[in-house]
């Protein structure tokens, strides 16, 4: 009888340990899933930020060229005031 009672308790302990192990695994899976989601968010944020910065850089380059052209035109006009003489 004692052996049978000890076996049952061992089985219960093993069952509890297995349950705790599955709970730990579930927790780890949740943590890993959230870390992956966080990683995916970071990757997506990096791509969107890079594209935004690239477009911004392109706009700034274009704007810089246009401003340089305007600066040259204004400097040419100021260098030749006879062009504005009516």
């Amino acid at each position: 009888m004692a052996k049978a009672g000890g076996g049952i308790t061992n089985a219960v302990n093993v069952g509890i340990a297995v349950q705790a192990d599955w709970e730990n695994r579930e927790f780890i899976s949740h943590i890993s899933l959230n870390v992956r989601r966080l990683f995916e968010f970071l990757v997506q944020f990096e791509s969107t930020t890079k594209s935004k910065l690239a477009s911004l850089n392109e706009k700034l380059d274009l704007l810089e060229r246009r401003l340089e052209m305007l600066e040259v035109q204004v400097s040419t006009a100021t260098a030749n005031p006879s062009l504005f003489a009516t």
Binding site: K52, S55, L56, K59, L60, L62, L63
Partner: peptide
Amino acid sequence: VDEKVDQVTETE
């Protein structure tokens, strides 16, 4: 970045 893009658009 959005603020800078807006500023660039305004400057454009």
